[in-house]
Simulated assay, not measured.
Amino acid sequence: MIFRQLFETETSTYSYFLGCERTRRACLIDPVASELPLYLELLQSLDLKLVYTLETHVHADHITGSGLLREKVGSKSVVHRDAGAMCADLLVTDGVPLQVGDLQLEVRHTPGHTNGCVSYVMADRVFTGDALLIGGSGRTDFQQGDAGQLYDSITGKLFTLPPDTLVYPGHDYNGNTVSTIKQEMAKNPRLGGGKSRDEFIAIMSELKLAYPKFIDQALPANQSCGSLS
């Protein structure tokens, strides 16, 4: 498998390139519009054809690159049906399998940060978007957030994966690149150590987080797959 973890510094967003070495088909998880030149350069240098852009949710902190990539290279955008982005080419639900050459991914619906949040599961890794972060979790104070639902999603859909499963999040603000399910179950300050649902809800209710500075531009654009018009 060809794998690249990419980081957009302004919004601390991770995007992930996954490519099949045999078929040269690829997908890109959570593309950022401003990084389009980098994506096109990578596709060319690695001799890959982008077939899917996979969104973990409708982002409030950056504008997706899925629409631009669809225009440039003909890739199809994938979003959960509850995300509110009816412009997507494929509206998926929990358990849907996705095939990219020899690569197999499974959609797991992990709402709580937003209604349409999903994680993408592979044999040895999971891309958790804004549901489970390294040493944290997505916020639940706006955009259909629900702390109890997020706890259920993480404990029921992610913490049930094999302990050695690699965790690749949608953001990190502390220089972390990867974790494991075992590590998050043990050490995550919000969820680890067997914290109860009520404890998690209490922790989330006490967070005093700033209003996302890009939300007023990002949400309407992302509901149109990145279109600003």
Rank of each mutant, 00 (worst) to 15 (best):
Q183R: 09
A147Q: 02
D47Y: 05
S196E: 06
G101N: 09
T9G: 13
V121K: 12
T23K: 12
S179W: 13
I134D: 06
L158N: 09
L132G: 13
R24V: 08
I134W: 02
Q44N: 15
G226E: 10
A83Y: 01
Q99S: 08
S205A: 07
Q183Y: 05
R70S: 12
G101A: 05
V121W: 10
T11A: 08
R197F: 01
T13C: 00
L43R: 02
S77N: 08
E35F: 04
K76H: 12
Y151E: 13
A88P: 11
V78E: 09
V178C: 14
D216C: 01
Y173D: 04
Q104C: 10
V79D: 15
N174Y: 10
N174T: 11
D130T: 12
L105W: 15
S224I: 08
A186I: 01
V167E: 00
N176E: 10
L219N: 07
G84Q: 10
N188P: 10
Q5R: 01
L69S: 10
S75M: 06
A210H: 08
N222C: 09
P220R: 08
Y39F: 14
H109P: 02
N174L: 01
M1R: 11
M122Q: 11
T155Y: 07
L209H: 07
K182H: 09
I2G: 03
F200W: 04
Y14E: 02
Q44L: 10
T177E: 07
V118N: 08
Q149K: 14
Q143I: 12
D82F: 04
F159V: 14
T155F: 05
L38S: 10
D61N: 11
R125V: 06
Y39M: 06
V32D: 00
Y173R: 03
L6R: 05
L158I: 10
L40T: 14
A60I: 03
I181L: 12
S12F: 06
S75Y: 01
E199S: 02
D47V: 04
L150A: 03
S15R: 01
G135W: 00
A83D: 07
P189I: 14
N115S: 14
L28W: 00
L38N: 15
R25K: 14
A88V: 08
C20S: 11
A83T: 05
Y39R: 08
G65K: 00
K208G: 03
P163F: 01
L42S: 07
I134H: 04
V58A: 06
M86F: 14
R139A: 13
F142W: 09
E206S: 11
I29Q: 00
A218T: 06
V126Y: 03
L43E: 02
G138V: 00
Y14I: 00
L105Q: 15
Y14N: 04
P37N: 12
L40Y: 06
G226A: 09
R25P: 06
E10Q: 13
V96Y: 07
I134C: 04
F17P: 03
A218K: 11
L46G: 03
T165I: 05
Y211F: 11
R108W: 11
